[in-house]
């Protein structure tokens, strides 16, 4: 077994969830890397120790869901310090968060919430991204969101916002292809112009997942295989942006590990055959 590295290899990985810890540690399937949700491993104990065992065998990406980078108030320093301690313990290959807010200052909505993309919000988020990068001493990757509504006040698209954010803070971009697909269906976002807006050299990772449909709205439930339209968009991204570490995410109705490995295999083969499809 080669030692797990400090960067994400340009290969397919899976989102590692609790029901698969034991199996992955026993089988050690040939995965490029794994990703986990940072907050599930804050402080100490069984969860963290399991992750440290995983880290001995795979590069680990820490994917945060609770920082609320666009929340109006000051950044939660307790949360940030907990993330810093986790980074010190796990030595992750990548650290990412979402382009979203979660706190009004009075209460927290524990979800990934969109906000208006304006010059003012851009400078607010930029400051906070820089605070995080400074604290953890490394580049942060920021993921595009799946949204079920947008804002009349927005002055730019999410893709343009991410491009500006990457330019001003040096952060990387985590391009979730399923989120883009969901937004194209729900909000009429044009996928091709979204991809065109992204600076290729800032895109450091892809996410792929399944979704479900409720009352005519696509919901990013991560509860199914990646659909054909999302695979098509992924191939388009590979051509326009290039091959990047690619993650299969599955959070609800999680299937057998073999299904995740199968999906990861499909992503891997799309990367390997990228040039074949460029006719």
């Amino acid at each position: 077994m080669q030692p797990a590295s400090h960067f994400l290899p340009v290969r397919a990985g899976i989102g590692l969830r609790a029901q698969h810890y034991e199996q992955v540690l026993e089988m050690l399937p040939p995965l490029g890397w794994v990703e986990v949700h940072s907050e599930n491993f804050f402080e100490g104990g069984a969860a963290l120790h399991t992750l440290i065992k995983v880290r001995e065998n795979y590069p680990v990406s820490l994917h945060g869901v609770g920082m609320g980078l666009a929340s109006p108030g000051p950044i939660d320093h307790q949360h940030l310090s907990a993330l810093k301690r986790l980074c010190d313990r796990v030595q992750p290959a990548a650290v990412s968060e979402h382009l979203c807010w979660n706190s009004t200052g009075e209460f927290v909505v524990n979800d990934l919430l969109p906000f208006p993309y304006t010059r003012a919000s851009l400078s607010h988020v930029s400051v906070r991204v820089e605070q995080v990068q400074e604290k953890i001493g490394r580049r942060l990757l920021i993921e595009n969101l799946s949204s079920y509504l947008s804002f009349a006040r927005s002055e730019m698209s999410e893709g343009e916002f991410l491009a500006e954010l990457a330019k001003s803070t040096g952060c990387g971009i985590l391009f979730d292809v399923n989120n883009l697909y969901v937004n194209s269906k729900n909000l009429g976002v044009d996928p091709e112009s979204f991809i065109r807006a992204l600076p290729s050299n800032a895109v450091m990772e892809y996410h792929l997942a399944g979704h479900s449909v409720r009352d005519g709205c696509l919901v990013d439930t991560h509860s199914d295989r990646v659909c054909n339209e999302v695979w098509d968009l992924y191939r388009l991204a590979l051509q326009q942006v290039g091959n990047r570490p690619t993650l299969i995410e599955w959070d609800n109705d999680t299937p057998d590990l073999s299904v995740l490995l199968e999906e990861a295999g499909i992503a891997q083969s799309h990367m390997e055959h990228r040039h074949d499809s460029m006719v």
Partner: peptide
């Protein structure tokens, strides 16, 4: 790993409350 001794909670049990998915 994987054993649940009577009266103790299983050390492989988890409290993974966090997800980045919408509620199914």
């Amino acid at each position: 790993w994987g054993i649940a001794k009577a009266g103790h909670n299983d050390c492989s049990s988890n409290k993974s409350a966090h997800s980045c998915a919408g509620q199914a």
